[in-house]
Amino acid sequence: MSRGSNPEARMPLREHLREFRKRLMLAAAGIVVGMIVGWFLYQPVFEALQQPVLELAREQDADVKVNFAGVATALDMQLKVAAILGLVVSAPWWLYQLWAFVAPGLHRKEKRYTFGFLAAAVPLFFAGVAFAWLVFPNAIVILTGFTPEGAANFLDAQLFITFAMRLVLAFGLAFVFPVVMVALTWVGIVKTRVWLKGWRWAVFLIFLAAAILTPTPDAITMLFMAFPMVALYFAAIGIGALRERAVRRRAPAEPTEAPA
């Protein structure tokens, strides 16, 4: 990145792409390490995912099982679960790389907000993961409850585990999106008025995503997911507005500092 005295200087496109590649490779390396950890976590994670099925079979005397239909299905599932667990485990690392890609556009004293970004993004990501983990057992109970009496329900392992892990990842990313909104506003890429102007579409898309991602047919669970996301969306707008107001107030009094 060029470090001239001009505060409006921008990183040349070639350097911008080089920085993007660097951060992408660092993030990928962290995810690979997370995948190795995820490989060893597969067994306890699978047992935890299977627990609602076992409890349902025991409590209702139902013939419900997770079925591995193919010879290589178990290995394929372990690889897929390890990949998604790698994304979850390495979340603090790749979230940092996301911020580090944006940070060159900040001034020196603004880069101290890196800790604030991570302190907000990482807990929210894991909060979304935890929320999905709580929703999943309830989904299994409700959806398998439609099995006719006397029939067996053999859950395909591919669909069962892939659905569970994608649900976990989707909730985590949904909960961290407001922090990304704040970051984009913080560096001046997206103005607060843009987020506010599109709030109707945002609320609609949030409820649509909640309806798709929530595996239960009841509206209560969908609302339980959508309301926190809407609240986080408007909280992100509020934080961005406070930031823009603070910048406007100090602009006449403080000289603009060149980016680091």
Rank of each mutant, 00 (worst) to 15 (best):
M1R: 04
M1I: 04
E8Y: 13
R10H: 11
M11H: 07
P12G: 06
L13C: 07
L13Y: 05
L13E: 04
R14V: 14
R21N: 15
K22Y: 14
G30C: 11
I31Y: 08
V32M: 06
V32R: 00
V32C: 03
V33Y: 00
G34W: 12
V37K: 02
W39K: 03
W39P: 04
L41I: 02
P44T: 09
V45G: 03
F46M: 12
F46R: 04
L49K: 09
L49P: 08
Q50V: 02
Q51P: 03
V53G: 06
L56S: 09
R58C: 02
E59R: 10
V64A: 14
G70W: 01
A74M: 08
D76Y: 09
M77R: 05
L79T: 15
K80E: 15
A83V: 10
L85I: 12
W94T: 09
L95F: 12
L98I: 05
F101R: 01
G105P: 13
K109T: 11
K111D: 12
R112K: 08
R112C: 07
T114E: 15
G116H: 12
A121E: 12
V122Q: 06
V122L: 07
P123W: 08
L124E: 01
A127W: 05
A127D: 01
A130K: 00
L134F: 08
L134S: 13
F136T: 00
F136K: 02
N138G: 14
N138P: 05
A139V: 07
E149Y: 08
N153T: 01
A157S: 14
Q158K: 12
L159W: 04
F160I: 03
F163N: 13
M165Q: 07
L167W: 11
L169T: 06
F171I: 05
L173V: 14
A174S: 15
F175H: 07
F177C: 11
P178T: 08
V180P: 01
V180A: 13
L184R: 05
T185V: 14
W186Q: 08
K191Q: 15
K191Y: 09
K191N: 13
K191V: 14
L196E: 13
A202I: 02
A202Q: 06
V203P: 08
V203M: 09
F204H: 00
F204A: 05
L205T: 10
I206V: 05
I206F: 00
A210S: 14
T214V: 12
T216W: 08
D218F: 07
A219I: 10
F224I: 03
M225K: 07
V230M: 15
L232C: 06
F234R: 04
I237M: 13
I239T: 04
A241M: 15
A241G: 11
R245V: 01
A246N: 10
V247G: 00
V247Q: 04
R248D: 15
R248C: 00
R249L: 14
A251V: 02
T256E: 15
E257Y: 03
E257L: 13
